[in-house]
């Protein structure tokens, strides 16, 4: 198998390498999810798959523990990127992004996800047009963020020669780092004519457009959001693809399980406090002799109805 792999790889490389020696951006993404995702997770996955023409969607993966199987799957489908949704407890969604045979792999927690359908944004774009990727400058500050940026670039950027890609650029994907999380947005680029004069010149071919660009007389760009929206919190980066040593771990990440358990504990604390108060009250009443059983007995008064009329 490995011999075959090596052989076939070398053959393939020879065919695909361009003559001038410039490397070509070739990406293919395997998109799939684990079992137990909710409908919203599934819709989000479909939305993303529709935005990525260089992707291959596969059936749900049966296992959550043997993720290294994904490497074989990726090889089977000729993919060098894996984009994997792992659902836990039917509510938490983790996103794995990996460069298939050799890594690295990033595991992220996905929050605030909204699918295209439920957002009702008016933006729209060609299915399979190549997006512009807009990154926050803070991605270049730390090595783990640079790794993340590179992975985003490979997975969300549609390579130039992708089979189903459309020739125009009509949407931009924004990746912003805020509050230790990565916020992802998708906008349509809508161009509007600033005046009538430019409309007449706009119909001519591309060359005058470039000239116009220099003059600053361009169509005005505005953005309309398309969706989906989601927020990612990086958790772990592994050196290999679904394996290998952990080379980064986010210590600020608090797992949703812990958050939930803390909320539960807090609630339990409230009950405990109340129960304690109840016990204290009983003890106090006992001290004052207001209880029929237990505690100190009240002093028998001579004028008490019980003694008077006994």
């Amino acid at each position: 198998m490995s011999a075959y792999k090596a052989l076939s790889k070398s053959n393939g490389d020879k065919q695909e390498a361009p003559a001038n020696g410039i490397k070509k951006n070739k990406q293919r993404v395997l998109i799939l999810s684990s079992r137990g995702i909710t409908y919203r997770h599934r819709h989000l996955l479909n939305d993303l798959a529709s935005l990525l023409p260089h992707s291959r969607k596969d059936a749900k993966l049966d296992t959550k523990s043997k993720l290294y199987q994904l490497n074989e799957l990726a090889e089977l489908y000729n993919c060098n990127n894996v984009f994997f949704f792992e659902a836990r407890k039917g509510k938490d969604l983790y996103l794995w992004m990996s460069k298939a045979p050799n890594g690295p792999t990033v595991k992220m927690h996905m929050q605030n996800l909204h699918t295209m359908e439920e957002l009702h944004f008016t933006g729209n774009c060609l299915k399979g047009s190549r997006p512009l990727l807009s990154f926050d400058a803070s991605f270049d500050k730390e090595p783990h963020l640079r790794v993340l940026k590179e992975l985003f670039m490979h997975i969300f950027g549609v390579p130039k020669g992708a089979r189903k890609a459309k020739p125009f650029v009509d949407h931009v994907m924004g990746f912003t780092l805020a509050d230790g999380k990565i916020w992802i947005r998708n906008y349509q680029i809508s161009e509007t004519e600033p005046s009538r004069i430019s409309t007449s010149t706009d119909s001519t071919d591309a060359k005058p457009k470039v000239k116009k660009n220099a003059d600053g007389k361009e169509t005005e760009i505005s953005l309309v959001e398309i969706g989906p929206r989601f927020v990612l919190t990086p958790i772990v980066i592994q050196e290999g693809s679904f394996g290998g040593p952990i080379i980064y771990e986010n210590k600020e990440f608090v797992s949703p399980n812990q958050v939930r358990s803390e909320i539960r504990l807090k609630k339990a604390g409230r009950y405990n406090q109340r129960a304690e108060q109840g016990v204290e009250r009983l003890a106090k009443k006992g001290e004052l002799g207001l209880r029929t059983d237990g505690g100190r007995k009240a002093k028998v008064d001579e004028l008490d109805t019980g003694t008077l009329f006994a």
């Binding site: 070509k24 951006n25 190549r130 997006p131 512009l132 990727l133 807009s134 990154f135 926050d136 400058a137 803070s138 991605f139 270049d140 500050k141 940026k149 670039m153 950027g157 390579p159 130039k160 650029v169 912003t176 780092l177 805020a178 509050d179």
Partner: peptide
């Protein structure tokens, strides 16, 4: 080939 643009200054929120 890559169509990625990084902002010149970090976005502050």
């Amino acid at each position: 080939e890559h169509q990625s643009i990084t902002t010149s200054a970090p976005v502050v929120i």
